[in-house]
Computed example of a mutant assay.
Amino acid sequence: MDKTQSRLRRARQTHIKISQLQVARLAVHRTNQHIYAQVFAPCGTKVVAGASTIEVEVRLQLANKSGKGGNTAAAQLVGKRIAEKAKAAGITSVAFDRSGFRYHGRVKALADAAREAGLKF
């Protein structure tokens, strides 16, 4: 079993547990260059809000920085944006789905920024 398969196995277990809770889910995915966050409705099929480092507004704010989308500063910005969008959609409490990634670095920075912006985990 390689690293990707192990991550997907952990992600599947987390996804099953969160779906049993029937609460909104904040899912995070990261690549080497970008980080993505989506808030899913409690039913689990509808995306209520989304934010990533690919968005034009985020890219403009990160234009002068090195690394652009693959660092913790970008993750903090995405965390703040996803919290604002979720609150605008009427969601204040979510379950954090890290998609099998370790709660460290960019994933942690995104979660902390979302908490500071008003989302409850």
Results as ranks from 00 to 15, higher is better:
G105I: 12
N64L: 11
H34A: 08
K68H: 11
H104Q: 15
H29Y: 15
R10V: 07
G69Y: 09
A41C: 03
K17Q: 09
R9L: 14
S66V: 11
Q38L: 05
A111V: 04
I35L: 02
A89D: 13
L21K: 05
K80Q: 07
K108L: 12
I16W: 11
Y103E: 09
F96V: 10
S6A: 15
A75T: 02
T31P: 02
D2K: 10
K68G: 07
G100V: 11
R115K: 14
A113S: 00
S52R: 08
V39R: 03
I35V: 04
L119D: 00
Q22A: 10
Q20A: 13
I91Y: 09
Q33H: 15
A74V: 03
G105K: 11
R12W: 12
L8Y: 13
V39D: 01
A117N: 04
I91M: 13
M1P: 10
A117C: 05
A73P: 03
A27T: 03
D97V: 05
K80S: 05
R12N: 14
P42M: 03
Y103H: 12
N71I: 02
V47G: 06
K108S: 08
S6I: 14
R106Q: 06
A88D: 12
Q5I: 15
K108T: 02
L60W: 08
G67W: 01
R98A: 01
V48T: 00
Y36H: 05
L26G: 02
Q22I: 07
F96W: 09
C43Y: 10
Y103R: 11
A111L: 00
K65A: 14
I35D: 06
K87M: 15
D2I: 14
K17H: 07
A95R: 06
R10Y: 07
E55D: 15
E55A: 13
A41Q: 04
T45D: 08
K68F: 03
T14C: 01
T4P: 12
D97H: 00
R81I: 09
V56Q: 14
K87A: 11
A88E: 13
K80G: 06
A11M: 12
L77Y: 03
L60Q: 13
A24I: 04
L60G: 10
L26K: 00
R59P: 04
D2H: 13
A73C: 08
T31N: 07
L110Q: 00
L110D: 07
V78D: 06
A37L: 00
Q20G: 10
A89H: 12
V78M: 00
R25C: 01
F96G: 05
T14S: 03
F40L: 04
K46Q: 10
A37G: 04
H34M: 09
Q38Y: 09
R102M: 14
V48L: 02
T92P: 03
R115Q: 12
T14V: 05
T72V: 00
R59K: 11
L8C: 14
R102P: 12
K120M: 09
R9K: 14
D97L: 05
S93W: 07
A75Q: 06
S19D: 14
L110K: 06
I91F: 11
A24G: 01
A88W: 08
A95D: 04
K108W: 05
T4N: 14
G79P: 02
L26A: 03
V56A: 13
L21T: 07
K80W: 06
A27W: 01
A86K: 03
T31K: 10
E116C: 11
